[in-house]
Design a protein around this nucleic acid. Structure first.
Lengths: 358, 358
DNA sequence: CATTAGCACTCTCTTCTTGAGAGTGCTAAA
DNA sequence: TTTAGCACTCTCAAGAAGAGAGTGCTAATG
């Protein structure tokens, strides 16, 4: 909004105001209660009187960084307040050693089991951030054909399993005009595999179409599948830790907030949209903080989302992050998300780099 | 409990008592409010006075089928009351034609896309039962090897994709002692595929172990994967419609109930346990109703679960069902679950029957 | 003898009142 | 510029009172 920009200049706060803003944010994050001048002075041994703090708070309120739930209550950070806190006060810091070790260790346990990586990442992220986590599987921007397998089932139904060079797998049912024996299916698959291996969608689409009906049908389906995969913005979405969020007071009290959170978690298309619109052009490894839905998402009105992309830029990437109340311990959450993104990027590089080697 | 058995005889209710119990259940299911004698007479045009109804209600309360939240409130069905209702009053009925058509139609849309079957089943089930749905992917009790694919990635890491004859797919990372070229990997996979195709875990395990190190490693991993698949009780779990349940008054008001429901939905191992213990020896197509956790599941204290197994008995089976408040429209939910189970059974037969044909 | 009208009684739920507590803003002094 | 002092505001919890819904019991009825 323009009003916002013009009314609030980035560095219009004195050192002392920044301190007080930071302390209000910190105290509110911990207690979920509006914080008053007296509490602040007492709790943090401030070397000024409550009246001084009151004056500064009045100034911060005037500037739009704090607000009062009602006339005679303490102060609560506004969206702007959190935003200022995140950009100007929380300096990029690394996750402390012990936490890094724990996470690395937890991850190392499941190194072999590819299928466990994503749910595990989601679980660890949820556990360490004490919020809800969102992790998408790494997704290739270009698919390279590796192998197709045709499995005869009943009569004219054929199950097709398509494997890409990154290890992505997709399945489809193909209904033929007439029953075909497994041998013929295998032969067809073999021929296709020889011709298509390592090829991209465009390369396969450019093949001269042969007259052989069975192979043509399969090829069409293969292309459709590969295209479908490339069209999608992200891989499968893994979620965890919804309970963490729902037990925060914001969500216990407000039925609206709760509905929003649960809805966000159930409606994958909503999540897809959120991830696509916020991290689409984001740089890998850079943490983005979305506070209060930014007017675009009604469900996120009282929430914040901390996101980062991971993977190999331009090749395979995924998104991961955390969703919680606006009153979130950003100082801990942001480094956690960054660390997890780096960790998964490493994992993806190790596994997927072969894609370009064939 | 023994007390329960001895105090309540199955058919100790008069026709009129059964009617009143049924009406209390029905009215309470609709309104979520304790039902009083006057309401009942008025609402259902009963040809008796409120005093008579009061007497019968007193009798039903004495027998343990109804209870009063407090002295001067209306009646609410007890667990026993619901149980009696489900077993003696709701007679097995089919889902009405229009609902069947709608469901079949919705399903037909996604016939080709195997990967959409399970989430779609969960979504439809949630939508039609207006509760939360639980669907597990069909799971083979015996795995038959179909094909393995080895994909060279970085250095010593190899991605293995294993396909079974029902179309099940699993992936693992294999770390070799030294780097191996893609050609050698493909050759090894080819040899393995020729030898193992169609074999079960036991048959493969019985092979004389060759000295060739690479193949041996792969074979070990293949076996481990197949075993792992057979050990699991069910396939992946798909959930939907948690919002439906959470917007029921029971869950809006009681934080405990809400926590229980969300916890059940997040903790897959809990669900696994629930499904395993209730439907393990169940007959395919028979609907089971679990009311109030039966003392075994704290999380289900105020909830009911309606479950059925589907698939081909002894070969591939899965479980599907619905989870909601104890105050559930069983007369609609039970036929819906049964119909969905039959539908999926059909689908599985069509697709998977090939398993025995090789 | 089962059924029913009549009635006193019980318990919850909502609304209103009241007082304590926390916090503010303003003014005037240091 | 900072701070002590103070009147004022607003919420929240606890208690009081009345309405409403429903019950159980008793005595009358076909």
């Amino acid at each position: 909004m323009q009003i916002r920009r013009s009314r609030i200049k980035m560095n219009d706060l004195t050192e002392r105001q920044r301190l007080i803003l930071a302390l209000v944010v910190r105290h509110y994050t911990e207690t979920a209660q509006p914080v008053g001048s007296a509490r602040l002075v007492e709790r943090y041994y401030l070397e000024m009187s409550t009246a001084t703090v009151r004056n500064e708070m009045a100034a911060l309120t005037e500037s739009g960084y704090l607000r009062q739930p009602h006339t005679s209550a303490g102060r609560v950070p506004t969206e702007e307040g959190y935003r200022y806190f995140v950009t100007h006060v929380v300096y990029p810091s690394d996750l402390p050693e012990p936490a890094r070790d724990t996470i690395s260790h937890q991850f190392h346990q499941a190194r072999q089991d590819v299928e466990q990586w994503m749910p595990l990442a989601a679980s660890i992220l949820a556990q360490h951030s004490r919020a809800a986590s969102i992790v998408t599987a790494p997704h290739s921007e270009r698919s390279h054909y590796k192998h197709v397998e045709l499995i005869s089932t009943q009569g004219r139904q054929v199950l097709m399993v398509l494997v890409m060079t990154g290890g992505e797998v997709s399945q489809q049912i193909l209904t033929l005009a007439e029953p075909v024996l497994q041998e013929r299916l295998s032969a067809a698959a073999d021929r296709l595999n020889q011709v298509c291996i390592g090829k991209t969608t465009e390369e396969i689409a450019a093949f001269p179409v042969r007259a052989v009906s069975l192979e043509k049908d399969i090829l069409t389906l293969v292309l459709q599948d590969m295209n479908h995969g490339e069209q999608r913005i992200s891989g499968e979405i893994y979620l965890d830790g919804l309970t963490n969020v729902l037990s925060e007071p914001e969500f216990l009290e407000s039925g609206d907030a709760r509905r929003g959170a649960v809805h966000l978690f159930e409606e994958r298309s909503l999540l897809q949209d959120l991830l696509a619109r916020t991290t689409n052009n984001a740089t890998v490894g850079v943490v983005q903080v979305l506070i209060g839905g930014e007017g675009k998402w009604e469900e996120l009105k009282e929430c914040s989302v901390v996101l980062a992309r991971y993977g190999i830029p331009g090749l395979v990437t995924g998104t991961l992050g955390v969703f919680g109340p606006m009153r979130m311990p950003y100082a801990r959450t942001i480094p956690t998300v960054r660390f997890m993104a780096d960790l998964l990027s490493g994992l993806v590089s190790e596994t997927m780099i072969g894609e370009e080697n064939d």
